[in-house]
Amino acid sequence: MTIKIAYLYYDLLNLNGENGNIKILKQQLEKQNIKVELVLLTTTDNIIGESYDLFYIGGGTENHLRIALKHLQKHQQTIHQAIENHKFFLVTGNSLELFGKKGIGIFDFEEQTAEKPFQEVILETDFVGKGIIGLLNQKKDIIETKYPFFKNSQQGIHYINFFAPKVFGPIFAKNPLFLEFFLKQLVLFKYPFFTFQPIEFEFEEMAYYNYQKLMHKKLVE
């Protein structure tokens, strides 16, 4: 059994510890005795949608997003088809912009510039029982989307298997329940009868609860 992951623009879009998502997913899949083929793709490569089970894109600087977009525009059709064909995508941080009206136009969301600072958030979703922790860039706010990722915020998109919470950082490190949900969906889509070993979260859960406590304290302060 193999899961093939394409890390798109690994050399451009990788800010703020988001490489951690790949490290974590890879190790957790391997613990389930699933082989992981990690393919690093960038502006010099061709993207073949059918070749991969998961496409990962991290956040980046404005200039790096611009460079990535030039390349992604050439593969708009491939990417669009892959999304519609239920391929998995995880897009973190500001890279969601690449898929909007000002990007390759797959999603019709509207953004507005807001001079608000970064904010640490805990946001609710339909698919994970506990809130998702993350760091939200509020310099560009999504004001409307048909496919919101969060229940109580417009800052992200969830459409078929396209997951784009607009939060920065290693979302899998901070949110063990989301990791478990995502990993199971990814594997079951390809191997519907897969039997999972229990996923061990030695430190993840305590880190999550600790963060919640710190956030609460910060709000009180």
Binding site: E202, F203, A207
Partner: peptide
Amino acid sequence: EKYAYDIALRLKY
């Protein structure tokens, strides 16, 4: 201290 579990988590990976 405060971020002990986050550090441990990073080390695990």
